[in-house]
Write a protein that binds this DNA or RNA. Structure first.
Length: 165
DNA sequence: GCCAACGTTGGC
DNA sequence: GCCAACGTTGGC
């Protein structure tokens, strides 16, 4: 019987001016809650599919250029995003309740910075990556699953041909 | 800063 | 359930 592969791969977007990879790296335990996600599809990935140990490509959006800056990992079970309950937070959601939270998140830990930042134009150049969600026109989803072969390809582009993580 | 593409809201 | 209006995302 084939052994099930346990580790999944994800791409998670972060606006470079708000939360770049370096800020995650400098956080206590290199860990931060991935708060503020207010899209149901992205929430469902975190709440229903992510597992501790899953690998994450950390993507800088709204950057010059945008692209993949580092590797992170899922390091908690899903739990309700606390910012939805904080009236002063820009992520406050008055329709959410503690009994039935609407928004869920996981904690993410930085694993390694890529030796070479992988800019979006380089991703677009790679024939093997053409069907990646983030390369599709009009793509806005901030969390997307990544195929293992795409993950390895991107690590190689970033200077980690043998995935030491 | 522009604006195309997208997701959500709410009137009907 | 439809769909117009609106707000947001994110590349450029």
């Amino acid at each position: 019987m084939k052994k099930p592969s346990h580790r999944q791969y994800w791409l998670m977007k972060s606006e470079v001016d708000a939360f770049p990879f370096g800020v995650l790296w400098a956080s206590p335990n290199r860990t931060s809650p991935w708060d503020g996600v207010r899209n149901y599809q992205a929430r469902n990935f975190m709440r229903d599919q992510m597992k501790i140990g899953d690998r994450v490509l950390f993507y800088h959006s709204n950057a010059n250029p945008s692209g993949i800056a580092g590797i992170a990992e899922v390091c908690s079970a899903p739990y309700p995003d606390p910012t939805q309950f904080e009236p002063t937070s820009k992520y406050f959601d008055p329709k959410s309740t503690e009994e039935a939270p609407r928004w869920w998140l996981v904690d993410v830990r930085a694993v390694a910075e890529l030796p070479r930042f992988v800019p979006l134009p380089l991703l677009r150049q790679e024939a093997a990556l053409v069907d990646m969600h983030v390369l599709q026109k009009g793509s806005r989803l901030s969390i997307t699953p990544i195929r293992a072969e795409h993950y390895r390809c991107i690590l190689a582009l970033g200077g980690l041909p043998n995935d030491p993580t």
